[in-house]
């Protein structure tokens, strides 16, 4: 199957893809700042680039809080229920 080969090619050029993603992300933030906000139901909706900030913060918060909960409270050995 050539599809696997194609994916392999893309993975080998991950660096290019990554820069492409950075450009797209920067473009989104710039666009969000330039285009006047269509919504103002909440104060943050008119802040340009808030979505980017919120997405990144959400991701970090979710990982940090969940992992903390895991280590402090929830994680057990895989055979915990076996005995």
């Amino acid at each position: 199957m050539d599809l696997g080969r194609l994916l392999e090619y893309l993975v080998e050029n991950a660096r290019v893809l990554r820069w492409f993603a950075y450009v797209v992300m920067a473009g989104l933030v710039v666009a969000d700042i330039l285009i006047p906000s269509a919504y103002d139901r909440f104060p943050w909706e008119s802040i340009g680039g808030f979505g980017a900030f919120y997405g990144f913060i959400s991701c970090v918060l979710i990982i940090v809080i969940s992992k903390a909960l895991g280590y402090l409270l929830l994680y057990r050995g895989e055979d915990y229920y076996d005995d």
Partner: peptide, 11 residues
């Protein structure tokens, strides 16, 4: 939505 998701990806 695109900002939210792509920057989640960054994280």
């Amino acid at each position: 939505e695109l900002q939210l998701l792509l920057f989640t990806g960054l994280g």
